[in-house]
Design a protein around this nucleic acid. Structure first.
Lengths: 197, 197
DNA sequence: TGTACATCAGTGAACGCGCGTTCACTGATGTAC
DNA sequence: TGTACATCAGTGAACGCGCGTTCACTGATGTAC
């Protein structure tokens, strides 16, 4: 197979990039529908492949969904990191990290639901996923590290605050009408000001 | 039908309390399995009734689940209110309300997932549910009311903090091992101390 | 450089399941007389 | 008090669907000689 064909991703019979394509399809499907609308067959079809083809790359449906969730966690950590890149001031850095987290949830509702929802309650079954998921936590924890304070407590505290609003957005319990993308920054800033870091 | 039969709930043909019994069955099923394991047929069977019988009391499956969620919200508000009953001190009262909220989530994982999860994203479809769901919010908002501060902001802020931890518990992203029922109180107290109400 | 061969990604058909919902019905209920 | 009747909660059978997964297979690939 030529490089070109590899990137194009099709040669008629062999797909060439099926694994990645399926994960892409899952993320794309999540922009149109909810987590419950994801089906192996649907993703296979969207990728232009037979319904049994995914089993060459994933053990079962959960395995595919876990891969999609992991990509989500990678993106989340990336967005947080790049948002806060270069910011050294502690409070400022935490603010940027948390606000990126909340914006991610607001902008990727259903993906966020897959990542943090009931799908992967038993994270022991998905060790790779668990590791990747830990990155965003680690970013916040890292920014909060200090000798004086109880870092673990502070991190859970601030993570909860961010995750709470993120979840309420994703599940539409707080409407975006009142808190749009721009005002998420304001909210986070204000919220962190009322907390004594 | 006699009163006794009414309370026993069975007369052979007519059930007598089927609507309530189905909601009970749903709450009970949620203690054993997840939200995705709930099925109309299963609940009917658990209630000792044919699979089509629920349709005499509920429009469809979602209607039944909404009724179950609403009972959950009633319980939540009740537990919060009774926990904080008699407590006048503002900070103290808020602490009791929030900690009751978190404990409810930890003790009723799957019910909490049904109540706040993706099921009822469009709350407009379930006006009664929305009203009942508002009770716990109103309790916190009520405790925080003040002329000086922006109540709306503070409420969302503290609600987010509580809801974040509650969700992380319910979805098993933070393990109860480190934060058991007793220490939830401690955590809440400490968290609220770091916030300037 | 050309050919035989092992590998394995993707095919296409099929299995079996549980589900939500519908339908015409039946039997229990309570009420009007 | 007794009987006719309207109501409607619950029955049982059936419909149709989409799903995850399996299986024997086939055709493309790249490698060893």
């Amino acid at each position: 197979m030529t490089q070109a064909a590899l990137h194009q991703g099709k040669t008629g019979y062999h797909h060439g990039q099926l694994r990645e394509a399926l994960v892409d399809a899952a993320l794309e499907a999540l922009q149109k529908g909810g987590v419950d609308d994801l089906s192996l067959r649907g993703l296979a079809k969207a990728t232009g492949v037979t319904q049994a083809a995914p089993y060459s790359h994933f053990r079962d449906k959960d395995d595919l969904l876990a891969a999609a969730a992991e990509r989500g966690f990678q993106r989340l950590a990336l967005q947080m990191a790049s948002e806060a890149a270069g910011t050294r001031d502690k409070k400022d850095r935490v603010k940027k990290l948390v606000s990126a987290y909340i914006r991610f949830a607001a902008e990727n509702r259903t993906l966020f639901q897959l990542m943090f929802g009931r799908e992967f309650s038993d994270m022991k079954k998905y060790p790779t996923l668990a590791m990747t998921a830990g990155k965003s936590y680690a970013l916040i924890a890292g920014a909060l590290t200090s000798e004086k304070e109880d870092t673990r407590f502070l991190t859970v505290c601030i993570w909860s605050l961010g995750h709470g609003l993120a979840t309420l957005f994703a599940d539409r319990k707080v409407s975006l009408g009142q808190f749009d993308a721009a005002s998420i920054d304001d909210f986070t800033e204000r919220a962190l000001q009322t907390i004594n870091i």
